[in-house]
């Protein structure tokens, strides 16, 4: 079976700015990978390329051996880093919206998670706090039975207790054939749920290792390692 996600010599230029420079890596099935890097290192660009929202200047992205397209949009459940939902909708409308759009959306699962996080389906997106909005977006994303979950900074505004619940949800909900790619700055919160870590810096792949390899080789957590390497 081919790798779930494969990036080959991926380069993306915005005019003269090189956002990603010759990045190659693979993510195997059943893995949870963290995408780490300082601000403006190319994390979101990489995720957008994987989702086919932008096209690479050179190189290829393969999901399940295929280039991004209509097929891959069913296989990938993507949580963008920006607000992307119609603000005037209430949660119930959003759930129906997702049910209409995605054949692999499990509405019961979504209602389950809403209840656990103390949200109800009458709440309107416009009047929600930042953290609550993030929770709703994450619930929508994680309620799809996808192969690859691409989460772009999913828990930034969420309180620590809900963060723990969300991370538990992430490790319990994904299936063994699926994978998760999480871009985040909250390294210490997520590192115990990660298998692998991808660190990018100035558009180049700086490191691709497992969490325990980093801990073993450097005698520090991934969080500590990151702070050491990118000390300002």
């Amino acid at each position: 079976m081919s790798s779930l996600l494969e990036c080959q010599t991926l380069t993306k230029k915005y005019g003269s700015l090189i956002a990603l420079n010759n990045v190659s890596f693979t993510v195997e099935r059943g893995r949870i990978a963290g995408l780490l890097g300082p601000n403006a290192s190319g994390k979101t660009t990489l995720i957008k390329l994987i989702n086919g929202l932008i096209t690479p200047t050179s190189g290829t992205v393969l999901i399940n051996g295929q280039k991004p397209g209509i097929e891959s949009k069913l296989k990938i459940s993507y949580l963008p880093d920006a607000n992307f939902l119609p603000e005037w909708m209430i949660v119930k409308q959003l759930l129906n919206y997702y049910s209409d759009f995605y054949s692999n959306f499990n509405i019961n699962k979504a209602y389950d998670m809403l209840a656990r996080l103390g949200l109800n389906d009458k709440m309107r997106l416009k009047s929600m706090s930042k953290g609550t909005k993030e929770k709703v977006q994450l619930i929508l994303t994680m309620s799809r039975a996808a192969d690859l979950y691409c989460l772009d900074e999913p828990i930034g505004g969420v309180d620590p207790a809900s963060r723990d619940y969300i991370l538990d949800t992430i490790i319990n909900n994904y299936n063994e054939n699926g994978s998760i790619l999480i871009s985040t700055h909250l390294i210490s919160d997520v590192e115990k749920v990660l298998d692998d870590v991808l660190i990018i810096q100035n558009g180049c792949l700086y490191m691709h290792k497992s969490v325990d390899e980093i801990r073993k080789e450097h005698n520090t957590s991934v969080d500590g390692f990151f702070r050491e390497v990118f000390r300002c």
Binding site: D168, I171, V211
Partner: peptide, 11 residues
């Protein structure tokens, strides 16, 4: 066990 420890099942 993974859930009890809040860690990745692979680990």
């Amino acid at each position: 066990l993974a859930q009890m420890a809040s860690v990745n099942p692979n680990t």
